[in-house]
Amino acid sequence: MLNDEHKILIKEFQSESIERKQLVKQQLELIYRNNWFNLWVPKSLGGLEVDFPQGLQFLKDLAYEDGGFAWTVTLCAGANMFAGFIDPRKAKDIWQNRAICFGGSGKIAGRAEVKEDHYLLTGMWNYATGAPHLTYFTLNAPLMKDGNPLLDANGQSIYKSFFVDKDQVLIHYDWDTFGLECTASHSFSLEKIKVPFDQAFDLVPSAKTLENPLFEIPFMCFAELTLLMNYMGMFDRFLDLLERQYFEKSKDESWRSKHSRTRFKEIDGIRTNFESSYAEIMEFSKLVWDQVENYQELDEQVLENIELKSRELAKWIRLNTAALIPYAGIKGAQRKEEINIVFRNLFTASQHGLLNV
């Protein structure tokens, strides 16, 4: 799915996207041309409908090339996956647009007043990755009726997921981070916006509106694994760049005699553990995919293993990156050096609430 031509183009516009703090038109055209935002969307809607393990491998490969670019594709493709949970007639109409891109916030915030024939949405939500090019913003909001929260049988607040046309949204250009700059993950707000009932949905397998094995995977598991692929792709690149610097440093006799053996041995050990962990997590993903493809009940133990392992790996990657970056020398501190870019992207990504432990 990712060829040499793609890699060259991604690298060519990486610096410009960082400077502009958003993906540039050439990067977006690459995504649209290859339909990457529709990685998980059914073919019936014009999507790629890739197998789960294949899609995960692609996201890791993409993150190896450019973490910010990959993060944007991951989050937007993950949101476009909502096509399987919204009104099918609405989805068919929306997916006529080759540049269709959902994205938004997983946070439950604001409020959704239930009216006679629509919802009235008000609130502010953070971190809508790809905000400048989104066609629909997604959000979660608790339901209200006559000013009172609607509660379920257990007394818990009922909430729904919504998607809202970009023209109804106010974007707050507040994404100012030292990494993942090009993801343009700005906040957005709504003020008493009317949203029809068919733009609300529930993101659970039992509420799917299209038949596809992917929609049988609990969203938490899907999110854990897709985000983890980004961490793993970026860390893989980080290790390669650091090792490349070690080879350069080895040309100096003094460095070679003092550090060569220990530094290379350390990075080899980390890489061995990394590759073993990646193989294990991919095996978990294949087990999940095999079960949903064959309409089997998902093994709860496998889901628990994914939940635990994904968080352990994200923490392990963060700690090892922090431990290794001082060995990168001054290059590790120079903003335009690739190893510094990867470092910044990794640490910004590590602040995502899902896998940050």
Rank of each mutant, 00 (worst) to 15 (best):
H172L: 15
T177Y: 04
T135D: 03
S157C: 00
Q156E: 11
Q168S: 10
D176H: 14
D165W: 05
M144F: 15
I158V: 15
D167I: 02
A153H: 10
E181D: 07
T177K: 14
L150T: 05
L170I: 10
N140L: 11
T138C: 14
V169P: 01
I158G: 01
F178T: 13
N140K: 15
F137R: 02
P142C: 08
V164M: 07
T177E: 14
T129E: 02
A131H: 02
D146Y: 12
H133Q: 11
T138N: 05
F137K: 03
K166S: 12
K166Q: 15
Q168W: 00
L170G: 00
L170F: 10
T138I: 10
W175T: 05
K145M: 11
L151Y: 07
G179P: 01
N140C: 12
Q168N: 13
F178P: 00
I158N: 01
Q168M: 09
L150I: 15
A153S: 09
D152T: 09
Q156L: 08
H133K: 14
T129R: 02
L180T: 05
F137Y: 15
T177I: 07
G179T: 04
L139Q: 03
G147T: 10
D174M: 09
L139H: 01
P149E: 06
Q156W: 03
G155R: 08
G147R: 10
N140F: 13
G130V: 04
L170A: 10
T138A: 06
L170S: 10
F137C: 05
P142R: 12
H133N: 09
L180N: 02
V164S: 07
T129F: 11
P142L: 09
F178W: 05
C182Y: 00
G147W: 12
H133W: 13
N154F: 10
C182R: 12
K145P: 00
Q156C: 04
I158T: 02
P142W: 09
S157W: 06
F163D: 01
G179S: 09
T135A: 05
N154E: 07
Q168V: 00
G155H: 08
D146G: 10
T138W: 01
K145S: 12
L150V: 15
Y136R: 13
G179K: 07
D176R: 15
I158R: 00
F137A: 03
L139V: 04
Q168A: 12
P149I: 13
G130F: 04
I171V: 15
N140H: 15
N148C: 00
A141N: 11
D165T: 09
T135V: 09
Q168L: 14
A141Y: 12
L180G: 03
A141I: 12
Y159I: 00
